[in-house]
Amino acid sequence: MKSNINKLILIEVIAGILFAFIASKILHMTAALQIMYLPFELIGKGLRFLSLSSAIGNVIAIIIYAAISMIPAIYIIYQRKRGRTHKEDILLVAFTGLLFYSMYMFINPGLMYQKMPDIFSMDQNSLIVMKIIYAFIIYSVLIMWLIMKAIRFLGDDSQKNWKSRLYFGMKGLIAALVSYYTLLITYAKTFELLHKSENKLQNVSSIEWLKSVLQLLPIIMTILLFINIIHVVKAIEDHKEEQQMMTVARLASVAKVTAVVTVISDFILNFYQFLLGATLQNVNVTFAPDVSMEPLIIAFGALIFYEYFKRTKQLKEENDQFI
């Protein structure tokens, strides 16, 4: 299990660096979030090129466009024939309509200007924001459907081996969080460094470099926390009491270190910014206090779980003595 998690993290780090390099150096993106709409952008450009190539190409483009947009509906029809549709699948009906509309907008990005709020300026940056919004809406509906599916899958205790499925779901959820954290942070920070390297390095303030380093430390500790949580779930699933206590104690130790590292990192960063406050007007940086809440919340949650687990084990041992 430990080897698999380490391999997953390594793959995520490599993927994050690769995506950042492609986005910054090959696709010449100016914002890290532009990668969100990259698949739709590529499909839209491809279909637009095909549509403008010839009359036959236009027909083929329409067929491909309809086929892509109909994927959720086709899935519903297939599942319905098997008698395996559920209430949450109604989201896929809305998702089909959303894909038809969104893909059409990516094929004809000029139409996005007509949908822009009045506060937006009619420039390329505003178009990028609109594309990110469309992509975010698509991902939100899809993630919502997946979450509802997962809840149904894990909450169905009428089938055999539901406990093993529950443990599997817990480990899968935590592994997904590890992947999200690792891939997102690796990609974002690498993209930031590559983007800065295109400019003169002396124009980048030292506080920005320090901020990047100090922000990474709590995130790295959070990833280690997630890995230890997976080990705890695995130990509980295997019903090994000694292993359970060892993994929970290790989780508590990592949680304490995470809390300390997070507090110290935030303190150093904010104190450093405070000392340089008098010269910030000459520095190309926006001053803002930095507080990393997510690592602290997860760390304190892990510590609470450790205390609960320890007290429960002590109570069980006392009851066993009476028996």
Results as ranks from 00 to 15, higher is better:
residue 2 K to P: 00
residue 7 K to Y: 03
residue 8 L to I: 09
residue 9 I to Y: 01
residue 11 I to R: 07
residue 13 V to W: 00
residue 14 I to G: 04
residue 16 G to N: 05
residue 16 G to D: 05
residue 20 A to I: 02
residue 20 A to S: 09
residue 30 T to A: 11
residue 32 A to V: 07
residue 40 F to W: 12
residue 42 L to M: 06
residue 43 I to W: 02
residue 50 L to N: 07
residue 55 A to Y: 14
residue 58 N to V: 08
residue 63 I to A: 13
residue 70 M to K: 03
residue 75 Y to K: 05
residue 75 Y to H: 06
residue 86 H to W: 06
residue 89 D to Y: 07
residue 92 L to C: 01
residue 93 V to L: 15
residue 94 A to Q: 02
residue 96 T to R: 07
residue 97 G to P: 03
residue 98 L to K: 03
residue 101 Y to H: 05
residue 103 M to R: 02
residue 105 M to W: 00
residue 114 Q to D: 14
residue 116 M to V: 05
residue 118 D to L: 14
residue 123 D to M: 09
residue 131 K to Q: 08
residue 134 Y to Q: 08
residue 139 Y to D: 10
residue 142 L to H: 05
residue 145 W to C: 05
residue 146 L to A: 14
residue 147 I to V: 15
residue 151 I to A: 11
residue 161 N to S: 12
residue 165 R to N: 10
residue 166 L to C: 10
residue 171 K to A: 13
residue 176 A to H: 02
residue 202 Q to Y: 11
residue 208 E to N: 11
residue 212 S to E: 13
residue 213 V to D: 08
residue 220 I to F: 09
residue 220 I to V: 12
residue 226 F to D: 01
residue 226 F to M: 12
residue 227 I to L: 05
residue 227 I to T: 13
residue 229 I to H: 01
residue 242 E to R: 09
residue 242 E to F: 03
residue 254 V to R: 13
residue 257 V to E: 03
residue 265 S to F: 04
residue 268 I to R: 01
residue 270 N to P: 02
residue 274 F to G: 02
residue 274 F to V: 00
residue 282 N to T: 11
residue 284 N to G: 09
residue 284 N to A: 14
residue 285 V to Q: 14
residue 291 V to A: 08
residue 292 S to P: 03
residue 305 F to W: 06
residue 310 K to N: 07
residue 321 Q to E: 15
